[in-house]
Nucleic acid binder design. Structure first.
Lengths: 136, 136
DNA sequence: CTAACACTTCAAGTATACTTGAAGTCAACA
DNA sequence: TGTTGACTTCAAGTATACTTGAAGTGTTAG
């Protein structure tokens, strides 16, 4: 199995070493072995963990729940229903987020169009167009 | 023009009154008039503002940039390029976010499927399936 | 009229997720 | 060999976005 130094990890994932130590302190990582001079040795397990952490983080799962997820996954027979519930809830949540994001995107695109029209109106010294800004 | 009390606003948007006062203190709101007993009177302008704030917040624009946006919009002739740049950048950012979110959704859905298979394996006391978790 | 509750201000506190600093150890190169 | 740079620990600090508390004023139902 491949091993990685903290430097390799921080470069691979573009995060500071301090964050890797922080995640370890939080208990998000399986045991991190050390060299005889006390330097951290990461493995492919840690790589996988960090990928999962990043996926969860990007999609808005808070650290506490990410922590629970890994705790559940250490003892699946006792927590299989918890982990399925967590993942299914998160899936639903993400579907909502995506839908909301697509609506919000439309509003931002509307603003882009509107301010580009204003720019033309300013340049040509013509009256400004109107815009009804509310989405609710 | 319609007017609203702080109570109506907090119920309409489901946020605490303190958040409305906080946004006002931050300078995110146009002038909030008062009754003769010093209670806030909100208008449709504030409704529109709050809709825009919520849209920006949901899509990850930090308060400082939301603040800049409203400052620019108070003086469009001087800041039309700034506001267009901000909105176009935000649009690009949102398109990336949506794409990333859809990829992440696939990973979560894969986890949902995987843990449901594990559940069956646990119940039937058969060997667990494998799962390669990494996305990088 | 008074009790309960909503509103006000302003400063200080909270939650989340890191980030930095100080002080020390270790390794590799000129 | 010395000095540069990377690593270590652990506590304290930071940024963002609110949230709460204290102390006081105003409003309304019985």
């Amino acid at each position: 199995m491949n091993t990685y130094t903290i430097k390799e990890m921080r470069e691979k994932f573009d995060i500071p070493s301090s964050t890797l130590r922080y995640y370890e302190d939080m208990g998000l990582f399986p045991e991190v072995k050390r060299t005889k001079t006390n330097q951290r040795i990461y493995t492919d397990d840690h790589i996988n963990r960090l990928c999962a952490i990043n996926c969860f983080k990007r999609t808005g799962l808070p650290m506490a729940k990410i922590h629970d997820f890994f705790e559940y996954s250490e003892n699946l027979p006792d927590h299989i229903d918890d982990i399925i519930f967590m993942m299914e809830s998160h899936e639903k949540d993400m579907l909502c987020q995506i839908e909301k994001m697509q609506q919000d995107l439309k509003h931002i695109q509307q603003k882009v169009r509107y301010y580009n029209q204003i720019k033309i109106a300013i340049e040509q010294k013509t009256p400004w167009p109107c815009y009804d800004d509310c989405e609710q």
